[in-house]
Each structure stands twice: as C-alpha cells, then as structure tokens.
C-alpha cells in the first residue's frame, strides 16, 4: 500500500503543472524510497525525469512497488481543486485501479477526497547512462525563464554559447535577431541570485525554443536552474525539489 502525505499540496501542484504540457501519460513508480517518473514527449525530443524522494513527504510509506499509470490532464484537473496550502495525501492499494487524493484544510475541518482511475501505459523507457558534461551553468530560474520567453518572440531556435565566464543566448529570426549575455556573478547575500559557470570546453548548441518554453514551466519549483551541456549531446535542465529533482533532457538541433 502507498500512503504519502505532503505537508502542502503546492509541491505536487507545481510538479504536475510543469509536466502536463509536455507529456500526456506517465507511469508513476512508487517504491519505499519515493516516487519516480520517466516520460518522453510524443516527438521524442524532450524527456522528463522526476524523483520525489520520501523526504519530500511529511509521512511516506510504500510496502510494495506500485506503478500508477496516470493521465496528466485528468490528474491536473483534480490537483487544481485542492488549495496550495492544503495537506495532500496520496493513497493506493497494492494492485490499484485508482489513486485516491485527499486534501485537508489545516485551519478548518474540511476534507476533500478524489479518486482518479488508473491506466495501463506502455511506455518506452530510455537508458540514460551517466553523462559527461563540458559546461555547467547555475543561474536564477526566473532569469532563465525570461530569456527563453523573450528569445522565442524572435525565432523558434535558441542558441546557447558558453565561453570562459559568460553564457550567450542568441536568437536569429526572420525579422531580426537578439541576444542576452550573462556573466558569472556571486551574490553573497542572496545566493539564489548568483550565476555560476563551470566550463571544461566551450559550448555552442542550438535548441528548439518551444521545448525550452515548456521546461521553464518548472520555474516556481526552484529559485535556481542547473543547465548541463556537452557538445552534440542532449542538454540537461535540472530543478531541485526539497528532496529530489525534476530533470529535462532536451535533444539539440543541428545544422541542416
């Protein structure tokens, strides 16, 4: 049996909000260590890897491994009915045909209970070896989100160029072009505002702006985003959860 109680529904609300526009169907794998998901978008360009460790829950138990096949849009409809500050408990039997979600108001005696039908989902599972990266950028997630949104107004591609101590986001469109350069920066008082660039080899990669604009839906989850890049390889965008992560692997674009 699975029983996982979040102190606040807001964490799962944000996670589902970040995923629902990229993937429609997901298997949520529940083990004693927590809940994990690997899901790939229909175009096979973006892969989502989610880990909500048991430590993210107020209380967590899962006696046997359980797979919850969930339709994200339906899950999102139910999740939106709960308040962000509600306690949220996920409950499933050992061989479940439904996931129960219980929202409890902390101040009043209000309990809302929902049941979501499960689905059998046959999904490709990709084997992601330990990847080596030539560059790692840590930056404020809100700043990254603004850059992705701004650059998408110009072109459907976004080029990321990293040299020693700066990252250049470059967009070449039909009616014009634009770029934003950010440099390494340490804010000792507000560390979440800092930009850190760790570079082994310079990087010049191009990505689909559409996918980046799906990834930045994770911005409310974490004040910083970590971007890991390697020449001619998929990039990794990571948002840390209190205990766990939401990662996106994005395949690059290449010259025709």
């Amino acid at each position: 049996m699975l029983e996982g109680k979040f102190d606040e529904a807001s964490l799962l609300k944000k996670v589902i909000d970040a995923m629902k526009d990229s993937v429609k169907l997901c298997n949520f794998n529940c083990t004693e260590n927590g809940i994990s998901v690997q899901a790939i978008d229909d175009s096979r360009v973006l892969l989502i890897s989610l880990l909500i460790e048991a430590g993210s829950f107020e209380d967590y138990r899962c006696d046997r491994n359980i797979v919850l096949g969930l339709e994200m849009e339906s899950l999102n409809k139910i999740i939106k009915n709960g308040n962000a500050s509600d306690m949220l408990t996920l409950v499933a039997e050992d061989s479940p045909d439904a996931l129960n979600l219980i929202f409890e108001d902390k101040r009043r005696d209000r309990i809302a209970e929902y049941s979501l039908k499960l689905m059998d989902i046959d999904q490709d599972f990709l084997k992601i070896e330990d990847m080596k990266f030539d560059a790692v950028v840590n930056m404020p997630s809100a700043e990254f989100a603004k850059i992705c949104r701004d650059m998408k107004t110009l072109s459907e591609s976004l080029q990321i160029i990293i040299t020693k101590d700066s990252v250049k986001f470059n967009s070449e469109g039909d009616f014009g072009s634009g770029s934003v350069v950010i440099k390494s920066f340490t804010d000792l008082e507000k560390t979440e505002e800092s930009v850190r660039i760790t570079l082994e080899k310079p990087i010049n990669l191009t990505f689909g702006a559409k996918y980046l604009n799906d990834i930045i839906k994770s911005t409310p989850l974490a004040s910083q985003v970590t971007i890991k890049l390697c020449d001619k390889q998929p990039a990794l965008f990571e948002y840390q959860l209190p205990s766990g992560y939401l990662r996106f692997y994005l395949a690059p674009k290449f010259e025709d």
């Binding site: 790939i40 175009s43 096979r44 360009v45 973006l46 892969l47 490709d124 599972f125 990709l126 084997k127 992601i128 070896e129 072109s155 459907e156 591609s157 070449e172 191009t206 689909g208 390889q233 998929p234 692997y249 395949a251 690059p252 674009k253 290449f254 010259e255 025709d256």
Partner: peptide, 14 residues
C-alpha cells in the same frame, strides 16, 4: 533553422 535531433539517437531503450 537547424534539424531537430531525436533522443532515441542518443539513449538506448531499456
């Protein structure tokens, strides 16, 4: 503006 690559060409299926 460039050819979109596919994740299946980088990662194998399990």
């Amino acid at each position: 503006s460039g050819q979109q690559s596919n994740l299946l060409s980088f990662f194998g299926k399990k």
